[in-house]
Nucleic acid binder design. Structure first.
Length: 342
DNA sequence: ATCTTAATAT
DNA sequence: TATATTAAGA
């Protein structure tokens, strides 16, 4: 007990987006546990529904075959677990952030939109009892989510509980890619935590999560700029002017009605839209995968995300379209509208 | 009100 | 190490 497996949507080829995988790790008394849910596993919808008999009724009756027992979520889960094992030995990836220097990359891609990041339902806590998270939708037109996907296990805690303490979110390459894509598409100017969070449309993601990551990400970009051409090993080709379609311009509020729906996270239908990408712009897309912002080292060698047609290779992100210069060190001067004063 | 940054905590 | 949390300034 204790192992929870989650399944995500799986598309054999149709997806233009990819990913899924999130890890939540628990850490309260010092012990750490890592839960991972696999990606790329067929979803019940894609596979023959286990809830249905594989044998046509007529046939069944003709041969006096007794109907199979109902499949419960647990069964499904178990079944997927098996599949998992297969995939594992098959080469599907897995990560843990331990001393795993040598990383791999995989080509298996799938899944579409609504990613889910779940908090561990554990309440061992001292104090702290009030936490209100308010989901407010701004003009971005984000679809409302509510379903927290199936958490199948013996544990049945209401996922809707926003009162739970979220565990450390692990920015998996998939999640990160999502993040990067969104940031790229927003343009540095609009890439602020709230918006990013909304566009990412990842359930469970908080503004804090994004803010924190963003901070690190910027740090990383800055570092990259500094090294733009020098390096011990020589592998800096990080130059690629990414026009970043700044078609996303909202004046703070009051717009209303743009076509920026990332996808319906509502438990159904497949939302199949990677990123908002307004207008059929060339989509400079900033695919890419970098060694997680820390330092070069995590995914050394670089793994490639290969999206449906986008080669994820040259890093295509250059913070160079700042409104007034390019320097972040102390509040990039904004066009100045909202007065910082009260 | 939210963002940004640095410092610090887990 | 990665991520969270907080404080202070804008």
């Amino acid at each position: 007990m204790g192992e929870e497996v989650k399944i995500s949507e799986f598309e054999v080829n149709g997806g233009d987006d990819e990913e899924a995988t999130a890890v939540v790790d628990d850490e309260d008394d010092g012990d750490q546990r890592v839960l991972e849910w696999e990606i790329g596993l067929p979803n019940c919808d894609d596979l023959t529904p286990l809830s249905q008999s594989l044998i046509p009724p007529e046939l069944a009756s003709a041969f006096s075959i007794s109907p199979e027992p109902r499949r419960t979520a647990l069964d499904v889960n178990r079944a997927s677990h098996d599949t998992l094992s297969s995939l594992r030995s098959s080469g599907a990836h897995f990560f843990t952030n331990n001393n795993n220097k040598t990383n791999n990359n995989n080509n298996l891609r799938s899944l579409n939109d609504p990613m889910v990041v779940e908090p561990e339902g554990d309440g061992s806590g001292s104090g702290s009892g009030s936490e209100s998270k308010k989901m407010r939708k701004t003009d971005v037109g984000i679809a409302e989510e509510a379903d927290s996907a199936v958490r199948t296990t013996e544990n049945s805690e209401d996922p809707s509980a926003r009162t739970l303490k979220r565990q450390r979110l692990v920015w998996t390459p998939q999640l990160d890619k999502r993040f990067v894509d969104v940031v790229a598409h927003l343009g540095i100017k609009n890439a602020v935590p709230k918006t990013i969070m909304q566009l990412m449309n990842v359930e469970g993601l908080t503004r804090e999560n994004v803010a924190s990551h963003l901070q690190k990400y910027r740090l990383y970009l800055k570092r990259m700029q500094g090294l733009s051409n020098e390096g011990p090993s020589a592998s800096d080709q990080l130059f690629a002017s990414t026009p970043v379609p700044q078609s996303l311009h909202e004046s703070g509020s009051g717009g209303g009605g743009n076509g920026l729906v990332v996808g319906g996270a509502n438990g159904n239908g497949h939302v199949g839209m990677p990123i908002p990408m307004p207008s059929g712009a060339p989509a400079p897309l900033v695919p890419v995968a970098m060694p997680m912002y820390g330092h070069m080292g995590m995914y050394q060698g670089g793994y490639n995300h290969q999206q449906n047609g986008y080669e994820a290779n040259s890093y295509g992100m250059q913070p160079r379209d700042w409104p007034g210069g390019n320097k972040y060190g102390s509040v990039a001067s904004f066009p100045n509208h909202m007065d910082p004063k009260s």
